[in-house]
Design a protein around this nucleic acid. Structure first.
Lengths: 153, 153
DNA sequence: TCTCATGTAACTTCGTATGCTACATGAAGC
DNA sequence: GCTTCATGTAGCATACGAAGTTACATGAGA
C-alpha cells in the first residue's frame, strides 16, 4: 500500500529550514524534496497553526522556524499534521454485531493500541534538535570522507 | 487512509470455520462477512499454501481447518497472507542521497521497526485457540444475558 | 502598481484493496 | 456421461486517499 509520507516530508523540510537559518520559500522547499510547492504549503498548514513555523508573504517572505528545536518532538509534529492513521492494517468493522468479530477486534485492538503507544512514545523522545545534531554529525563525517577521497557529488 | 482488512477478515473466517466444525463454502463465508466469495478465496489462498486450511471442490466441498488451533498464532496468519505492510506512514524516499533525509530515515526507521517488532511479537503470543476461547466466553455471556432479558436477535 | 510570496479550492493522477463477472477445472451425484 | 456444485484465477470496475497540478485570490514589499 502506498504510504503517507507527510510526517517524513514535514520533518525533512524543518531540518532544511534549520540548516538554512533564514526564510525559505515553498518553491525552494519543494525543490529540496522534489515535489510541488502546493504540497509543501498544504503540509505546513498544520505546523503553522500549531505555531512551530511562521509564514510571510511578499518579497523576502517564506517559511521560518518559530519554535525551540529542543522543545519540539517528532510526536509534536505528528500531532500538528493531524495525527494521521498510523497503521495500514485494521478491522473490517469497527462496531460489529458478530460476536466472533467482537472477540477478534478486542484482541487485535489491544495489540495495535500498544504498538501505536510505543511508536508515539518513541517519537516523543526525539526532538528536532536531536535530528539536526544527527544530520550535522553525518555532514561532518561526509566532509572528512570527501577530503580523503575527493570526488564530485 | 483506507485500511487493509485482510488479516481481520482471514481470522474472522477461521473462527467461523472453527465454530462450524464442517466444511464451509466460499459463499457461506462471504455471507458471514458480507463480502464476495472471490474475495474470500483470494484471501484464503495464502492460508491454503501455508497448510492452515484445506479446500475441496464439488459436492460437499468447501474449506476446512487443517491445523491445530493452539499451535497457530495470529502472526502465522499474518505471514501466510504475505506479511502485508503494517504502517500507513513511511519514508518519502527509501535510499536518499540527501543527508538530511538519511538522518531522518535513520531515526524514523528505528522507531517504526521497534513498534512493528512489538506488534508482531504480541500477535505471535495469541493463538487461534485463544481467540476461539474468547469468542465462546462472549457467546456464553451473551446467552445467559439473553435468558434474563429474552428478546429477539 | 508591479512583483513575489502565501492560501486555498478544484481537479487530475496514481496506487491499492475491494467488488464483481466470466470462465476453466475438478469432484460428487444422478 | 452429464449435470450440479464447488474451487481457482484472470481481468476489469470501483472506491478512496495521498500526491501532484492548475488557477486564482490575497497580501506584503519594492
Amino acid at each position: 500500500m502506498r504510504r503517507d509520507s507527510r510526517l517524513s516530508g514535514a520533518l525533512h523540510v524543518l531540518l532544511h529550514m534549520a540548516e538554512r537559518g533564514q526564510p525559505m520559500t515553498s518553491d525552494e522547499l519543494a525543490l529540496c524534496m522534489s515535489t510541488n510547492p502546493v504540497v509543501v504549503r498544504r503540509m505546513m498548514a498544520g505546523l503553522r497553526e500549531a505555531g512551530f513555523v511562521q509564514s510571510e508573504k511578499g518579497h523576502g517572505g517564506g517559511w521560518t522556524i518559530a519554535c525551540d528545536l529542543k522543545a519540539v518532538s517528532i510526536k509534536d509534529i505528528y500531532d500538528a499534521l493531524g495525527a494521521p492513521t498510523v497503521f495500514a492494517l485494521g478491522n473490517r468493522t469497527e462496531a460489529p454485531g458478530c460476536l466472533v468479530e467482537q472477540a477478534l477486534n478486542s484482541a487485535l485492538d489491544s495489540a495495535f493500541h500498544d504498538a501505536e503507544a510505543l511508536l508515539l512514545a518513541r517519537l516523543g523522545t526525539i526532538s528536532l534538535a536531536d535530528l539536526s545534531d544527527d544530520f550535522n554529525r553525518r555532514f561532518a563525517a561526509h566532509r572528512s570522507q570527501s577530503r580523503k577521497k575527493p570526488r564530485a557529488v
